[in-house]
Amino acid sequence: MAAQNPFAGNAAEADAGRGLFRIMCGPCHGIKAQGGRGPDLTLGVYNAGNTDRDLYRVIASGVSGTEMPAYGSRIGDDNVWRLVTYIRSVANRREVPVTGDAAEGEKIYWGKGGCGNCHRIGQRGGVMGPDLTLVGRKRSIEYLRRALDKPNADLTPGFYTVTVVTKQGQKIQGVQRSFDNFTTQFVTADGKVHSYQRDDLQSSERSYTSLMPAYTSWSEAMLNDMVAYLASLRGEAGK
């Protein structure tokens, strides 16, 4: 293996890698590397290490104990580097500049935005929505921006809306923790976990939508400040 990626930043080689990716990797990692049976590869952070050499090693040798096979002997050194180059080209988290003020975003988050009522950061905040402690490592700038005014564009898997009506006629709505063939567990805005046998309810439904409001009334500056704050949440000291 070459000490460094011979195709680093080469758009033509990345495109060749894209062709290979759709065929060999797409079945598990999604046609656009967005994830599926295998992990999302567009985030710029990877379970097995973040250098080109780490990516090379995973593709060439596979990952023991998972369904990730070894491709090195099948496709050859150059093709593994082409895949690495393609994967780098879709890790777009850093491509969009952060224009807002993270400190302002933090104030909005815990203040008038009300974000902290549902989303935890570190030891603080509500539990109904996804924990955002490391969201800056997991999601791209574009993704974060879109999540604020189009929360239904892409839901964090599992964080769907559950609506039940009890036998007494009480309607309760919350965010799914589990929704299976016999039971459901969900969390309401007050942080309470509800658990029901679905047989004991008048009705129980799951919709593939988010309970998060769409912040379409926020100014562009507020949205940018919030994105800047979320992007800074990387689990590092002081955040």
Binding site: G19, R22, I23, M24, G26, P27, G30, I31, G36, Y71, R74, I75
Partner: peptide, 18 residues
């Protein structure tokens, strides 16, 4: 996807997505 055949390698002609 058009795909070159390599003996022993995944040969699905692309994929499906949910």
């Amino acid at each position: 996807t058009n795909q070159q055949f390599l003996e022993g390698a995944w040969y699905q002609g692309s994929t499906f997505s949910g």
